[in-house]
Design a protein around this nucleic acid. Structure first.
Lengths: 258, 258
DNA sequence: CGAGGAATTGAGTAGGTTCAAGGCCGGTGG
DNA sequence: CCACCGGCCTTGAACCTACTCAATTCCTCG
């Protein structure tokens, strides 16, 4: 794990990567672009040029409504790949902005295709990360559609902590949370005022500690119960042995051809 | 277009397919399994065996909460591919059920991988359909998070009509809509009672006609305004010429290798 | 023709919003 | 070092959208 970049760290959750794989993934992240906090990386209507890997910092995907309301649908943390699917489209249908100073590596569409064609193991791992993205979107829909405000807040806090744990950025259920209550509200379909009241309640009940952009989950079990869910949807278990051996076979074939 | 199956019809929206491609896609759909109405095709916790193509009928993806509440996040119509991303996972995190008698073709995971490796144009088109799925999930999040109940209903009715138009199943903004108001409610995060009142209002305002499971949008423009959106997110415009030529190049390379 | 699910309607309620004001805190400039 | 400023957090009170519960009617299908 030592010296390994966040992308390799994240993908190795799914399937063990060879040294060669890790080097390749780390190499993809060398050419980083730096963005200030509160800056758009991608804007609705842009023509897709490439996929992105977030290596440091934090960002979010959002859309603005005609009346100015904002909905946030994803938070990106180090190791997250995004825009992978959009390469084929005419125009991006949403915006992405940073929350803090953030570094982003770009991967050209050609490189993406090359990875899928020539590096089955990495391709599979990227595919898996897309699964995870889709599962998170589904979970958000469930939260917004059928969970109470308390349940929504509990769910989002758990998700953010679990994801950061998966890339080694959390220690003992504590993470840096550079979000305002307004941003939490825009992610959860609530108003900032109401998010505030709920966070107050959680603090009073000793469920969380949250101050100075630092969040600690004090009672994960009870939070999960409030949210009515568990972390299965993040599919952090890694590939089954069948899938692994299948992918390794592909990888061997590939090498023999070359 | 004549004689072409719904999958080929849908994918050719994105990129022109060769006769060979069409034959291949149609062949994938020959082995259909038939399901009754109101039957689970996939259940939460199942081990993924294959991807699916819905060829006739209609289905939906949903999740049940511990307290029995249900959230529907996707409706599948003919031509839709699903489970494509799940092949790599240990367990499916949601269920899928039919609304009406439905036919489903299964595509083994191996076939999926083969399509991506050996048929770049089809692979790209499947990729595009995944983009569309993701975009629809995002749109649902926006709807549940930031649209009023009226806006949500208007949005979903438009989406269902537009999607059926894209596979030639709608005539003049009219479709078959085999949903109960309870199912609409579970997709929109509302109660059946409230959905009912909103539909009443839409009928009174001559926005829609809806009876006997047949829906007609009488004033799409006004509905769009109520929903505050347009159909860009479905990415029905097809690939740009650059993308097309790039994919065609891949296809040629592939052929030369073989 | 009868039965059961779906649609419809009404009345009362509640969870979350809106509006508005005040307090805290970190950063900046003198 | 302190004073000021602006953004964010916090709190209160009134309001409203959508929910709940319950009863009635309508369809559809056997």
């Amino acid at each position: 794990m030592a010296g390994r970049g966040p992308l390799a760290t994240k993908l190795s959750r799914f399937i063990p990567l060879s040294d060669e794989d890790v080097q390749l993934l780390d190499a993809l992240c060398i050419n980083e672009e730096r963005f200030e906090a509160d800056t758009d990386i991608v804007r609705e209507g842009d023509v897709p040029r490439s996929a992105f890997v977030l290596t440091h910092g934090m960002a979010f995907g959002y859309r603005l409504m005609p009346d100015g309301k904002r909905q946030i649908f994803t938070f990106m943390i180090p190791g997250d790949v995004f825009g992978l699917h959009a390469c084929l489209l005419r125009a991006i249908d949403h915006s992405i902005a940073t929350l803090v100073p953030t570094r982003i590596a770009t991967i050209s569409c050609a490189t993406v295709l090359d990875l899928f064609q020539h590096h089955p193991r990495i391709g599979a791992a990227l595919w898996w990360s897309a699964c995870q993205l889709i599962a998170m979107l589904r979970e958000r829909i469930v939260a917004l559609g059928r969970r109470s405000a308390r349940g929504r807040v509990a769910y989002l806090l758990c998700e953010l902590v679990w994801r950061q744990q998966a890339v080694g950025l959390a220690e003992d259920h504590a993470i840096r949370l550079p979000l305002t209550q307004a941003e939490l509200a825009d992610a959860l379909g609530l108003t900032p005022v109401h998010v505030n009241r709920i966070l107050q309640g959680f603090r009073r009940d000793n469920l969380i500690a949250l101050a100075h952009h630092r969040l600690t989950l004090l009672d994960v079990e009870r939070l999960q119960k409030i949210a009515g869910f568990n972390q299965d949807y993040l599919h952090l278990g890694g590939a089954t042995t069948e899938v692994r051996s299948y992918i390794d076979a592909l990888q061997r074939n590939r090498r023999e051809v070359c």
